[in-house]
Design a protein around this nucleic acid. Sequence first.
DNA 1: CGCCGTGTTGACCAGTTTCAAGATTGGTGG
DNA 2: CCACCAATCTTGAAACTGGTCAACACGGCG
Lengths: 239, 239
Amino acid sequence: MSVAETYTSAKAPGAKVLPWNLPSSAARAAVEADLEALKRLGMKLRFSRNETIFSEGEEAKYSYRVVSGAIRLCKHLADGRRQISEFVLPGDFCGFLHLDEHRFTAEAASDVVVMAYPQRQIEKLGDDMPCMRKRLTRFLSERLAGAQTHLVMLGRQTAKERVASFLLMLADRVDGEDGTSVELPMSRQDIADYLGLTIETVCRVLSDLKRSRRVAFPDLHHVVVLDIESLRDLAEADE
Amino acid sequence: MSVAETYTSAKAPGAKVLPWNLPSSAARAAVEADLEALKRLGMKLRFSRNETIFSEGEEAKYSYRVVSGAIRLCKHLADGRRQISEFVLPGDFCGFLHLDEHRFTAEAASDVVVMAYPQRQIEKLGDDMPCMRKRLTRFLSERLAGAQTHLVMLGRQTAKERVASFLLMLADRVDGEDGTSVELPMSRQDIADYLGLTIETVCRVLSDLKRSRRVAFPDLHHVVVLDIESLRDLAEADE
DNA sequence: CGCCGTGTTGACCAGTTTCAAGATTGGTGG
DNA sequence: CCACCAATCTTGAAACTGGTCAACACGGCG
């Protein structure tokens, strides 16, 4: 079964495709197809949990693709507050901003394996190959659209809605077989910092969801089983 | 005095350039320089306050540049909640997302005059002219970086910090002579929906700022005089 | 003059945070 | 394999920020 098929079958008829903040599985599959040129530029790197991959303000020498694990993209305030703008999951790209400096910090949310591509070469690739260029603008456009959805979440949704949306997003992005059992490759604190909440609030909401049988934690803290339909009611968000 | 000069002189020595969500005045000035090709594609349109320019989900036929007034880019939830992701001020662009559908709604925040450029032609321009293409990817990158700053604001800043940051951002973006007197081309409700607050909270914070002499309203509600330095203390935000 | 849209202020309330105390989990070394 | 420790997660109670509801003020315009 191709990734693209997994993607379409995961969408129940009538289910709305959420405009989340990374390219959909379908888009990723398409990228896969003609990414050979990029592949041979990359080198494989490993980072362990909480290692910094690059920092805000650094010169942007590389862009990355996650092979396994997860990266968090975040900004740190002087007093320790932190906001995560995005989780980068296996198959996803990050960087590629075509700015001289990184505008956010990238840290390993779990042990992670990435491919690193030299920024220079990527830009060259874009110059030479129109298809790559189109992909890049589309990628950036998609990410911007995703960020706007995230803004709605932080600006106008309640804690319960945010957590529900978050879980649905993960289920949507992870190519799980059935899509209801999802691994959370990030800590509660990471989730809180993504959702603009405290870790305690995230815990409480998850406990509520557990009590109302909308989620279950079979083993540890890091695997969730979702009742998609009932979570969708809570998420409410979309237009 | 060129726009670029205005920009650099507005930055006091040591003042940090805020990574806000639209291209800086300097960037805009540079765009100006070689935008002749684009210019003759555009047609001038007028919208009056609260008119919809385009809606989320519509086919993206045009991109826009604001000549005068302001546009708000926003998303509406089913129950009436609204989040504004960006204000588009004179000289700024919007659209250009290279996606088939608009991912947000654009409405006139005040009476507004815009230039509308056919999306098709723009893409063609990008194909033909490498410099335009680079400008586009840089534009999108810059917008994405700006959205991330906005995320920090909504996720991790207090009401006071948000309002202070907002006023500083406006002062930074508007090419005012001295930069301390700023016109607010949007309503209190618009500001609230940009900041993820209620209109009452925005009013209260503004009143506080007025009492503590950090802002003043000479005439109406729609012109503010700022004490940049003391507001910067409140904004706190940046890394 | 009086209405309507918009902005301001006050009193009260609710959701979220804060602070603090445990409970679980995972890892390490005996 | 188990004991122990540190890190992470969970839960509770109290405090607080910002939201809600309601009244009022102000300015623009017919």
